[in-house]
Design a protein around this nucleic acid. Structure first.
Lengths: 192, 192
DNA sequence: CCTACCGATCGGTAGG
DNA sequence: CCTACCGATCGGTAGG
C-alpha cells in the first residue's frame, strides 16, 4: 500500500516537473505562477508544496533532470563512433535534439532562467554543466590536434554552443531543413 | 522657463531609461520593480508614471533606443570600408561593442526579455531588427558570391548571430582576448 | 492532496 | 515630481 502511494506520488511529481518545464520555457520562470503549474496538472496551488519546498526548487529540478537526460543522450550518441569529426557530428545532433525536439524544454530553461536560481542551486548545476562540456572539449581537442579547427578549443566550443543554442530562436520544424541538416551545416562551418 | 523644464525632464527620462536598461540586464525585467528603477535615480516609485505610462513602455523604449544606437554605430562602422570581408569584420566589431562594452545594456535586454513585450511592442521592434539585419544580409551575400562562405546567407547569418550573441555569456574584459580579438576569431571561422 | 488563508509585494492611480 | 493609497496577485503555510 505504501509502495503504491509512493509510485503515484513519483508520477505526480514528474507531471509537475514536465508541466513546469513547459511553462517556464513558454512564459519564463517569473511570469509562471505556482497556480499556473498546479492548474496544468489539475491540482490546487497549495498542493505544489507537498511535492516541492519552493517554486525555485521546481526550477532546480527541471534543470537538473534535464541535464542528466542530456548527458545520457550524449553518451548514447557517442557509442561506437570513432573519428573525431563523426563524434562532433554526433554531439551536435544530440545537442540540437535536446534543444529543439518537442518536449525538450529543459535546455532553453537552463539557458534563459539561470538568473532565477539561487547561488547554491547554480553551483549544483555548474557541476553537471562541466560534465556535459567535457565530451565537447575532448572531441574538439582531437580535431585541433588534426589541424581541423583554426582557433583554440575553448573559443571554438563557445562559438559552437552559441551558434547551436541560438537555433532555439529561429528553428522551425515545418521548414525543409531538419535537425540533422542543421547539425551538418554547423559541422561544415566549424570543421575543415 | 518652459524650455528649461522640458530639457530637465528629457534628462530625467534618459536617466530612467539608462537605469532601467542596467537593471533589466542584471536582474531581468520581471524581477526588476518600478521601485528599483525609481530608487536608482533617486525618485519615488509613483513618479515613474509621470514619464512612462507603464513598466512595459520602459522596456520598449530601452529596446527601441538601443536598436537605434546600434544602427547608427553600424552605419559609422561601415564608412569607407570596401571589401566584403572587411565589411563583415566591421559589422562583427560593431556588434560585439554594442553587446559587450560597459554601458551597453540594450542588446542583452533585447535578446532575453523579448517575451515580456506585448505583441504590439514586438511588432515595432521587429521592424528595427530587420533594418539591422539588412547590412548583414548584403555583406554575407557578397561573400557568398565570392564563394567565401559555404552555406546559405540566412543560415550563416543565424550561426554568426548565435556565436556573437553568446559571447555575452562568457566574455570577460579582464582576460587577454579583447573585443576586436573575438571578432577576428569569428571572422576566420566563418569566412575562408 | 484540499481548504482557507495570510503577509508581502507589485504596478499603477488620484490629487496636489 | 511627491504623498498616500489601492486592488490584485503571488509564494507559501496550517491544519486536516
Amino acid at each position: 500500500m505504501a509502495k503504491v502511494k509512493t509510485h503515484e506520488e513519483a508520477n505526480r511529481r514528474t507531471d509537475l516537473v514536465r508541466a513546469a518545464a513547459r511553462l517556464f520555457r513558454e512564459k519564463g520562470f517569473e511570469r509562471t505562477t505556482v497556480r499556473d503549474i498546479a492548474n496544468a496538472v489539475g491540482m490546487q496551488s497549495g498542493s505544489i508544496f507537498y511535492y516541492f519546498k519552493s517554486k525555485e526548487e521546481i526550477l532546480l529540478v527541471v534543470m537538473e533532470e534535464g541535464l542528466l537526460l542530456a548527458l545520457q543522450d550524449q553518451e548514447t550518441a557517442l557509442q561506437g563512433v570513432n573519428t573525431a569529426r563523426e563524434k562532433l557530428r554526433a554531439l551536435m545532433r544530440a545537442h540540437l535534439k535536446t534543444l529543439l525536439e518537442r518536449g525538450s524544454d529543459f535546455i532553453p530553461v537552463l539557458l534563459y532562467e539561470w538568473k532565477s536560481l539561487s547561488e547554491e542551486s547554480q553551483a549544483r548545476i555548474v557541476n553537471l554543466r562541466d560534465r556535459y562540456e567535457q565530451s565537447w572539449n575532448e572531441t574538439l581537442q582531437a580535431l585541433k590536434d588534426e589541424g581541423a579547427i583554426p582557433t583554440s578549443v575553448r573559443i571554438t566550443r563557445l562559438f559552437v554552443f552559441g551558434a547551436l543554442n541560438w537555433t532555439a530562436q529561429w528553428y522551425d520544424p515545418n521548414l525543409r531543413l531538419d535537425i540533422d541538416g542543421v547539425a551538418d551545416r554547423a559541422l561544415e562551418l566549424f570543421v575543415r
